[in-house]
Amino acid sequence: MKNKNVPYKLLYYLFVVIIILELILIAHRSTFSINNLFNFTKESTGLEQGIKNKKIYTIISLINKNRISEFNLSNELYKSKYNQAKIHTKMFQRVVEASYPSKLNEKSKIIFTSNKSLYSKCKKIDQEENIYVFNCK
């Protein structure tokens, strides 16, 4: 019996070690951060890690900071290496999802752009890094 138990126990502990390593891998691939655990009841926790794109996060921050209810994105923001329709771009989808309940409306006069020269006649509302918010009323 002893001979049988030793390899079984060894296998069991080896399995437990593999389980722990796999859990660490899952945590790593899920962008684990202990700060999220301490703040999981707070508003917008995990937003920055979830978006994983600095430019999009800046746009969301500007929308929240200026309490903008409707906005539009300038066309140059929808760059895509796959040359797909703008609704399929990461910029469109992430901004629509993360900014809600603020809404993207193509008729809105509040425009987000990374090229301020395109809107030189409009009034600048705010700026963060290379993202500008213009009011083109």
């Binding site: 962008t31 999981f40 809600y100």
Partner: peptide, 20 residues
């Protein structure tokens, strides 16, 4: 459960369909 409560939603289906 701990990992879930410590990580944001980042994959497309979860973020763009179900959670949106």
């Amino acid at each position: 459960c701990l990992i879930s409560l410590s990580s944001p939603v980042s994959d497309w289906d979860g973020r763009s369909i179900w959670l949106f």
